[in-house]
Amino acid sequence: MRRAVVLVVLMAFVWAVQGEAAEVTEPVEREWPQEGVFGTYDRAALQRGFLVFKEVCAVCHAVKYLRFRDLAGIGFPDEEIKALARQYTVTDCCDDAGEPFERPAIPADPFPKPFPNEQAARAANNGALPTDLSLIVKSREGHENYVYSILTGYLDPPAGEEGPEGAYYNPYFPGHWIAMPPPLSEGIVEYPDGTPATVEQMASDVTQFLAWLAEPTMEERKRLGLRFFLFMLVVTGIFYAYKRRIWSRLR
């Protein structure tokens, strides 16, 4: 008991000292269907998110870990994946003359990059390099909330604040000035399921798509976890009884 008191006092002291937090705007807290022990991805949102990604984000951002075949994971049938892949051309090496040649993409191909290399990407983007989005949700503090906040967080700069040339004010971005122009505007895509394409809706959908892309095996993981826990609870119970039984032999 006394130990606990000492610990609590100590911790309270440390917390009190912690007061001086850095001036980072915390991302908006939102609820996501993939959160929690039983959370799963919302397939309809993922498919809408992919549409936003394909038509808006993919103009500048690469996703090196997305292959067309992966889209089966968000509910696309094989034929649709093939048809989609065929709409893109990829450069393959090499034909009989040793020259690179172009061919339609197949499901095993990665989703084509918008720029052939970093220099080209920078040249086309005012010197800034658009981040690869494959793992963006996993690699940022705040995860989904951060991505959503960036997409919906563009504001007019506060009076007196001046950013670098060509940068936009976004309080959720570290340093508050971001090179990416506001990517979403009302109705920039048209959803086939008739969902109104508001900025919030699109940001939410594309964030969910990117969360899936960062960890496509999440649902499998949670499913296996559930089976693991059910099994382990039984084993733990049995061994608890067995242990007591064995030890009751003493005394």
């Binding site: 039984v234 049995i238 061994f239 009884a241 067995y242 064995i246």
Partner: peptide
């Protein structure tokens, strides 16, 4: 106890 012993080690083995 023998039954418990059997069940315990069997479940562990299956796992």
């Amino acid at each position: 106890r023998d039954f418990l012993e059997l069940v315990a080690w069997t479940t562990l083995g299956v796992g």
